[in-house]
């Protein structure tokens, strides 16, 4: 199976609004990531832009609609569209989420949580197997941002993801912002989460912005992808890089889009931390 081949550099989510600026200068950007579902039309501007971006840059295709944590089988039509997209653009990486987004025939357009049990572990593994067999490539599975937990969960999330990776051979996408959001929401320690996380299986990191609301028991953080990366998330990211060494790192910004220089500066900040991490490891070895 094709391994993940993204460079250990910062990347950004590609937005059509930034196309002209990117063509002018994408210095320091190691790869671009797209949401698969935005490129499933037959032709036109989205494919013209993506073809141009792809010709010059490494590409990560990130699915948001496969509903890998869903209760029923994957939608074969949708999986076939993902496969066609990957065949067309030959991305260095394909990733999806540990979440569900479809119920029956309905698509809910959010990444919804699942309990972590032996039952859901088997389901998720079956779905990941099916995706990898259809795409003919190893995929990355991403940890979600969650706002509630399930009383019936019996497996901690990092362990659940480790076990999916062990059984299916998939890699993991570690979203550092999601770790901070979820752990803050559940009153747990993000550093303990990261210590339990199998960093050697991580093929890509995500960084993104969140919103905060004060509740009596503590802050409610919402994974909004509509703001700059928060300082505590930068700190956690630097700690991950210090341990794991440099990794492909995406800055996600999907809502309230900034101008390109603002996003490029966020990527440059990530690049600076990645470069320092690489030097530290080189000295240690």
């Amino acid at each position: 199976m094709l391994p993940n081949l993204l460079p250990d550099l910062p990347g950004v989510g590609f937005k059509p609004e930034h196309f002209a600026a990117i063509r002018h200068s994408a210095a320091g950007i190691g790869f671009f990531e797209i949401h698969a579902e935005n490129y499933m039309g037959a032709g036109g501007l989205p494919h013209a832009q993506l073809t141009a971006i792809r010709a010059d840059h490494a590409l990560s295709v990130h699915g948001v609609g496969l509903s890998i944590g869903g209760a029923r089988g994957l939608d074969p039509d949708h999986l076939a569209r993902v496969a066609r997209l990957c065949d067309r653009y030959q991305p260095e990486s394909f990733s999806e989420h540990l979440a569900w987004s479809s119920h029956g025939a309905d698509y809910l357009n959010d990444l919804l949580p699942l309990p972590y049990t032996e039952e859901t572990l088997r389901l998720v593994c079956n779905h990941v197997d099916q995706v990898q067999a259809t795409l003919g490539r190893r995929m990355l599975l991403e940890n979600p941002a969650t706002y509630l937990c399930f009383a019936q969960s019996t497996i901690p999330e990092p362990e659940f993801l480790s076990e999916v990776a062990r059984r299916t051979g998939c890699g993991l996408l570690l979203d550092v912002n999601n770790v901070f959001v979820s752990c803050t929401n559940h009153g747990t320690d993000p550093r303990a989460y990261l210590t339990a996380f199998p960093l050697h299986l991580v093929g890509e990191l995500h960084l993104g912005g969140h919103e905060a609301e004060a509740l009596p028991s503590g802050p409610l953080l919402i994974d909004s992808h509509g703001a700059a990366v928060a300082d505590p998330v930068w700190a956690l990211f630097a700690e991950v890089i210090a341990v794991a060494g440099p990794l492909p790192t995406l800055v996600e910004w999907d809502n309230d889009l900034p101008d390109w220089p603002v996003l490029a500066a966020e990527a440059a900040r990530a690049g600076h931390i990645l470069a320092k991490g690489g030097m530290g490891l080189a000295r240690a070895s």
């Binding site: 809910l108 357009n109 959010d110 919804l112 309990p115 706002y147 509630l148 937990c149 399930f150 009383a151 019936q152 929401n185 559940h186 009153g187 509740l215 009596p216 028991s217 503590g218 409610l220 919402i222």
Partner: peptide
């Protein structure tokens, strides 16, 4: 039942994030 928040009184508010995500994104 079976959804847990760090303060049980906040389950409704925290679930509302999901309701809001679905509504606003659609």
């Amino acid at each position: 039942a079976g959804l847990v928040a760090r303060d049980p009184a906040e389950v409704e508010r925290r679930f509302a994030v999901y309701r809001n995500n679905v509504t606003v994104s659609l």
